[in-house]
């Protein structure tokens, strides 16, 4: 191959890179989602295979075990129904009191179940793709939960699927507070690349009363995440910036490495 052809190929690749990296952010996101849609047939194929394998495994489950599980679930269902009735009554009471005091009505959130279909192939980001899209009512910045604790937020949405940026990624910052007497607050920032279960909670004042094992919840500041969603527990803490601030390590309640299904909170 001649040198001229080499230069032509180099020039073409350079041009493609230049165009793609300088696209407006919105166009780039749409293009990414459109290209990602090309994998949908493969995702469907894998899902079908997994479902078939799951069905085969279910068919092999012993009848006695199924009856026992059914019984346990029935008991749990009854207990949850009773709790739901009590919660409904509490909510009504809460609404009445809010009306009396003149507080703003709190929005109720609906949860929608989504399946994790793809994970970020790069080691330096923490994102997943879920099988709900704009046709299901999803939009950007909706909170995403798993096992009743926060895992991240929706970062971009296409018609059929959406990308969720997980806690610990540098693009997912969460205003949080510690469940202690002082209600110490801070921001959940990025974690390390190795352990997905640990994240940093930064920007505390010096005079904190942190203790390992204390619960960390969303503070509701920032307008994206509603107040009071569990995030995790404090593991340890240390003084940073010459003792001006405190930084704590938080063990997340959800296992981000093994996410299979998540709940998207919709207003």
């Amino acid at each position: 191959m001649s040198k001229r052809s080499h230069y032509m190929v180099l020039g073409l690749v350079g041009l493609v890179v230049l165009v793609l990296t300088n696209l407006p952010s919105r166009t780039s996101t749409r293009l990414k989602l459109a290209i990602g849609s090309l994998f949908l047939p493969l995702i469907g194929l894998v899902s079908a295979a997994q479902q078939t394998a799951g069905n085969a495994a279910s068919a092999l489950a012993p009848r006695g075990e199924l009856i026992r599980q059914n019984e346990a679930l029935r008991h749990e269902n009854q207990q949850l129904r009773l709790q739901a009735i009590q919660a409904e009554e509490t909510a009504r009471e809460n609404e009445r009191l809010r009306q009396v005091i003149g507080w703003q009505k709190q929005n109720t959130w609906k949860a929608k179940l989504a399946r994790v279909i793809l994970r970020d192939p790069a080691n330096w980001w923490r994102t997943v793709q879920i099988d709900l899209g704009s046709r299901d009512g999803l939009r950007e910045n909706l909170p995403v939960l798993a096992n009743e604790s926060l895992v991240g937020r929706v970062s971009s949405v296409s018609l059929t699927h959406a990308q969720v940026v997980l806690l610990g990624d540098s693009n997912c910052k969460v205003a949080a507070r510690v469940d202690n007497e002082a209600h110490d607050s801070g921001i959940i920032g990025s974690g390390g690349p190795f352990d997905a279960s640990l994240v940093r909670l930064a920007c505390f004042s010096r005079t904190t009363t942190l203790k390992p094992g204390q619960n960390v919840l969303t503070s509701g500041d920032g307008g994206i995440f509603p107040k009071g969603i569990p995030i995790g527990k404090i593991v340890d803490f240390r003084a940073v910036e010459y003792g001006l601030f405190t930084e704590a390590r938080v063990k997340l309640a959800a296992n981000l490495g093994a996410l299979e299904e998540v709940w998207v909170m919709m207003p």
Partner: peptide, 19 residues
Amino acid sequence: VMFDSLSANPLGVSILPLF
């Protein structure tokens, strides 16, 4: 481009290193 579309990488970032 396919790698970047499934990742949080900006689109086109992986092309030049691979090439």
